[in-house]
Design a protein around this nucleic acid. Structure first.
Length: 421
DNA sequence: GTTCTGTCCGTGATGCCGCC
DNA sequence: GGCGGCATCACGGACAGAAC
């Protein structure tokens, strides 16, 4: 079916709209399924610059498309009035108009306008579109492979960036510990590490340089260990200093160890308690006690939220969210690592996310985020504003009235029912 | 300060209805 | 049948307020 894609005269046409219109006229378009394209476009939303209300509108449009139209000679044309979309999204018609324009300019749909601009679809007896006017998602079919590749690249880059960030943290901490073990080298190592951190290079490059510095630190530690062994040959009860976190190991670990590592050890409720971002420590003097007091409050809130939320519950309750971000919640590091992607998926601003993290802690905020994403994926119409929903849950967490485990048990149960049914 | 959203107003095309 | 009036639907521009 090759049919010229009409654009109404009243429409202000941009190059992006024209490009989408051209793609909508393509032949030999690849087959796909409604579920595959829906999932792919949701994953690609951050890349395509689609979030918030536009994402909601896109979700509704994809839901209204017919499965058969995504195969063969079909054309996935969706006809729904702006008024209906406004009703579904709880937005004004003007906003819906803007959202539709964004979707078209993102290159995944094209305008197929009737002379009046009204949208309608007539189908023949076989159910094929005989005459259709509305939003044509043929461009999404045409770009199927390209979008897949973009999503893969995006997720690879995101993972590389996360890995680099973790490496920077890991090596920085190891170097700081080494500074305590070898005070004679502390100044030079600190300066070198500081210089690397202040470089305007990529996170991966920083990680690489810190790794080199860390290797030097280890070499020095080994040489000192050899000297020590030689001078102490024959002694009994010699303590090795090769460990960069020596005599005060436990203390150092309390301060610097990776929460992710700790949390991964257990999957029961106690993991949450270990996940406090700011673990209360013994009083260390008046000058430090006040900020620590504030940190402890965040830790308390986080502990209260996560007390009954093992990561396994998130894994079972948030299936759709995991699928959507292509991350398995095997450990808390996975949940926290996927937070950026999930934040984009629900259209939450960076500032709102940072605020949430500051108020309830990174782990609790990530768990809340996963729950909101899961709910919005399962029933977009139930949560008109996922960002607002997230903020409300954070407020409740601060008030102590949030019971995340109940929500997750409910999601886990309904998820199982859906699969079984 | 920027972005998002809602409101108001004007334009264009068509369909429906009543009147001549 | 032709005409005019009205309603409907969709759009864009401008502006103001809210949210971030």
């Amino acid at each position: 079916m090759t049919e010229a894609t009409a654009i109404a005269s009243f429409r202000r046409v941009s190059p992006a709209i024209l490009a989408s219109a051209r793609m909508a006229m393509a032949n030999d378009i690849p087959d796909t399924s409604k579920s595959e394209i829906s999932l792919l476009l949701k994953k690609a939303a951050p890349i395509l610059g689609i979030d918030g209300t536009t994402y909601h509108v896109l979700d509704i449009l994809l839901g209204l498309s017919r499965g058969d139209d995504w195969k063969g000679a079909g054309r996935p044309i969706v006809a729904i009035s702006n008024a209906k979309l406004a009703e579904y999204t709880l937005r004004s018609e003007r906003t819906v108009t803007r959202c539709l324009r964004r979707i078209v300019e993102a290159g995944i749909a094209a305008y197929r306008d009737s002379p009046t601009g009204r949208r309608f679809v007539y189908r023949d007896n076989d159910g094929m579109v005989a005459s259709g006017f509305g939003l044509d998602f043929t461009p999404a079919r045409v770009r199927l492979a390209e979008i897949k590749e973009s999503v893969d690249n995006y997720q690879r880059e995101l993972k590389a960036s996360q890995d680099a960030r973790r490496a920077v943290t890991r090596f920085s901490r190891a170097i700081i510990d080494a500074c305590e073990a070898f005070p004679e080298k502390a100044d030079s190592w600190r300066c070198a590490a500081q210089a690397i951190m202040e470089m305007t290079v990529s996170r991966a490059e920083q990680a690489s340089r810190l790794e080199s510095l860390h290797s030097e630190v280890l070499e020095y530690a080994e040489s000192r260990f050899d000297q020590h062994n030689m001078s102490c040959a024959g002694d009994i009860g010699v303590t090795s200093i090769i460990n960069t976190t020596p005599k005060n190991l436990s203390d150092s670990n309390e301060r610097t160890r990776s929460h992710e590592r700790d949390i991964k050890k257990t999957d029961d409720g106690s993991a949450a308690e270990m996940a406090y971002e700011n673990k209360p420590e013994a009083a260390v003097g008046d000058t430090q006690s006040r900020p620590r007091q504030a940190e402890k409050t965040v830790g308390d809130i986080q502990g209260a939220v996560l007390a009954a939320v093992p990561v396994g519950l998130l894994q079972v309750g948030c299936r759709a969210a995991q699928e959507c971000v292509s991350v398995e919640f095997d450990g808390w590091s996975d949940v926290v690592g996927a937070a950026e992607m999930m934040r984009r998926m629900i259209g939450l601003s960076e500032a709102a996310w940072a605020d949430g993290v500051g108020r309830v802690g990174r782990y609790a905020a990530s768990a809340i985020l996963a729950t909101v994403l899961e709910k919005s994926l399962r029933d977009p119409e139930l949560i008109a504003k996922p960002g607002g929903y997230f903020r409300a849950m954070v407020d409740r967490a601060v008030d102590g009235s949030l019971h995340l485990s109940k929500s997750l048990y409910g999601l886990a149960e309904s998820g199982m029912n859906t699969r079984n049914g």
